[in-house]
């Protein structure tokens, strides 16, 4: 794995829907490459005989019965910054 290039950063911004200024781009590019270096160091550890961890707690099958809990939708809906009637407004797509 090489360096994170300015092109990689552009793509990341697009995927994350972020718009950065030129100064921010320069600043973050340095920081991101430092983070990458950090992971490179972690990768040096020999983990060949260690099973991968996908979950930090040793639990399985925390399931729920199929029973309705009456929702209180208005309390949640009030949190939406822009609304129209009962709809939530999002920026135009397509």
């Amino acid at each position: 794995m090489g360096e994170i290039t300015p092109e990689d950063l552009e793509r990341l911004c697009w995927l994350s829907r972020l718009r950065l200024s030129q100064e921010e781009k320069e600043e973050f590019l340095g920081q991101l490459n430092k983070i990458l270096d950090y992971f490179r160091r972690i990768e040096e550890v020999d983990v060949e005989h260690v099973p991968p961890t996908y979950h930090v707690v040793d639990l399985t099958n925390v399931l729920r019965e199929d029973e309705v809990e009456e929702p209180r939708p208005d309390e949640v809906l009030e949190l939406a910054p822009r609304r129209k009637g009962r709809y939530i407004l999002a920026p135009r797509i397509i």
């Binding site: 729920r64 019965e65 199929d66 709809y87």
Partner: peptide
Amino acid sequence: SPPNTHICPICMGLPGTLPSPNKRAI
């Protein structure tokens, strides 16, 4: 149903909520 009547903090992804799978779906 009228819009946004079947919503709760879990399916709206509010911080601090914990989803738990429906056994019958499995």
